[in-house]
Amino acid sequence: MSAVDTRLPPPGARAAHRGSPGPAPGRRAWMPESATALLLLTPVILLFGLSVIYPVIETLRISFWEIRGLGRPRFVGFDNYLRLFSDPVFLGTLWTTLIFTVGVTIVAVTIGWTIALLCAFAPRQTSIFRLMIFATFGISEAVAGYIWIGIFRPGDAGLLNGMLSAIGLADLAQPWLGGANSALIALIITAAWSAVGLPLLLSFASVQAIPRSILEAAYMDGAKPLAMMWHIMVPLSLPGARVAIFLTLLSSLRAFDIVFVLTAGGPARATETVGFFMYRESMTQFNLGYGAAATIILLIGVLLVSTPAIAQRTKGAK
């Protein structure tokens, strides 16, 4: 064996070898790689194109047209957008969407994350309770809406009012879904109840991923559970919680089912979110252009919230 043979290959050689897993030289190329790729991707490109790419472009196009029911479409430029921003109902909708989204995210992530942190101290003893909370993940928003209608019923038949009376807060009892503010609160509570599973799951996974010895070291350093949570577990489970915050923001921003079922946007459109507004305009009033413009605004909001995630995924797309 000569000295040359034992030398390491130059750094570039390995990279080049890894670079293209294309057909190995000498192998019978029975089909060009691009053709194989096309074959495997055809269903995906067709279905994705039909139900994502086409609709996005088409919604954008329609938003510049006035289309009422089956009448003749008329090109109106930015008219729909200008109308939206002078429409007090739509402006109210934006505000409602903001409060709803932020409210649901704060409530759901706070509860989910806190429970996840607590559960880490006794994973086995708390597993059944964790499952009880997590179970809402399997229940649809629509069903959640029906479940909570019963709780927010006016008078003593509603559980919430009944409970408030029982603890001496009968003054707070009210027809929850009847008042503008209380209906929004009810909507946030219901959505948070339904949404808490994901923050719980993600934060719990993140807490569990903290090396055991770090927690033991903190315990040896005298950290009691609350100090341990605050100084060690919160900072170290932040990655999971950050994903949870983002996903909860995203799904609340797009909410429709739960609004439709629990309040249908009422009373007097006080709980209408943008996602519901576009449905009402386009599917019940058949103002397709107007509804499409509202959808584009929703889309812009979603993209703004998602910018960091999109940047990260785009960078990671190799």
Binding site: Y279, A292, S306
Partner: peptide
């Protein structure tokens, strides 16, 4: 990039064009 970032899209985007 287009496919993996489409997860942010709200369902509402598809309903008008697909309805038509």
């Amino acid at each position: 990039i287009i496919i993996i970032n489409a997860f942010v899209l709200p369902q509402q985007v598809v309903i008008i064009p697909l309805f038509q």
